[in-house]
Amino acid sequence: MERTRSAVMRAATDLVVEGGPGALTMDAVVLRSRVAKTTIYRHWKSRDDLLATVIEASVPRLPEPEPDADVETSLRVVMRYSVNSLRDTEWSRLLPAFIMLSRHEAEIRAINERMDWQHNRVLAELVQRAAAEGIVESGIDVDEAIAHLQGPLMIAFLAGLMPIDDRIADSIVDRFLAAFGPSAAAKPRTPAAGPGGDA
């Protein structure tokens, strides 16, 4: 039973990676996995159910921080893990479809929410530890901090602006620490410029 399930999952994942969600049909899975359609339906009630299982299995989970590890090192480990996830062939090709489907499909949206919750929890814990240890300002806005850590990497990946490697992970952490370090808290924040260039 486990071999059968693995064969179906491998076939379904390959189909989505190669051709996007539209390439995943039960007939295509049967052809590629050589598992009977009746057997597949014993495990998954529908094609959408199988697609959700494929995506759920592919979603990366950030590593839980070591309680005794240096918080800056832990930030770098987490950001490098995020980089490696985006360099993974399967996940990098599934991610755009995952983002699109999460806007329209309730089951995929729920997977996205669970992923966001886990990622945000890990990053929030590290930001709070950094604040407690005086590495960043004590009154830091945790949600804003998470956006500064995750946003630049996702934009660079989706826009193809630069190589996704450990250097960008370390650069994001360096810029984050510079922007939110204790000395930065004493500097007045410059208001964003309006459309006409005025602050």
Rank of each mutant, 00 (worst) to 15 (best):
R61C: 07
R114F: 01
G151N: 04
E90Y: 00
Y41F: 14
D88E: 11
S74E: 12
L95P: 00
V71Q: 03
A23V: 06
S85F: 00
L51R: 09
E90S: 08
I155M: 10
R121Y: 10
L158D: 09
G139L: 08
Q118K: 08
R76W: 03
E66A: 15
A145H: 03
P21K: 13
P67R: 05
L86P: 03
S46G: 06
D48K: 08
D70Y: 06
P21V: 15
Q128V: 12
L126N: 04
T38H: 11
A97H: 14
S58C: 13
Q128K: 13
A69W: 02
W117C: 02
I135L: 14
S46F: 05
L86G: 04
E64Y: 04
V83G: 02
W91V: 06
I99V: 15
E125M: 10
E107A: 14
R76I: 09
E90M: 02
R61N: 08
L31H: 12
H148G: 04
R93C: 03
N120H: 13
P65K: 06
L31R: 15
I135W: 07
A36Q: 11
E137W: 01
E107D: 12
R109D: 10
P21L: 14
R129M: 07
E64R: 12
E144K: 11
A69N: 05
A124H: 09
I55W: 05
M79V: 04
V54N: 03
P152I: 07
D27K: 13
S138V: 12
R103I: 01
I146C: 06
R42G: 14
R32H: 04
E56G: 13
L31T: 12
L149C: 06
V142M: 05
H119G: 11
I155V: 15
I135P: 01
R32S: 09
I135F: 05
D49C: 06
V78L: 02
A130M: 14
I135Q: 03
I135R: 15
A130W: 08
E125G: 15
P63Q: 09
R61P: 00
S92V: 02
A106M: 06
V83S: 03
L126C: 11
M26E: 05
A52L: 03
I135G: 00
M26H: 02
M115C: 04
D48S: 11
R93S: 08
E107Q: 11
T53Q: 14
H148P: 00
G20M: 05
P60S: 04
E66P: 01
D88Q: 08
K37P: 00
L95V: 11
L86Y: 13
D49N: 07
L101W: 03
R129T: 06
L31V: 09
R129Y: 06
R121S: 15
E105Y: 09
R47E: 09
G151S: 07
R103A: 10
S33F: 07
T73M: 09
I40K: 02
S92D: 01
V127F: 04
D27V: 15
T38V: 13
W117F: 10
L123F: 07
R42L: 08
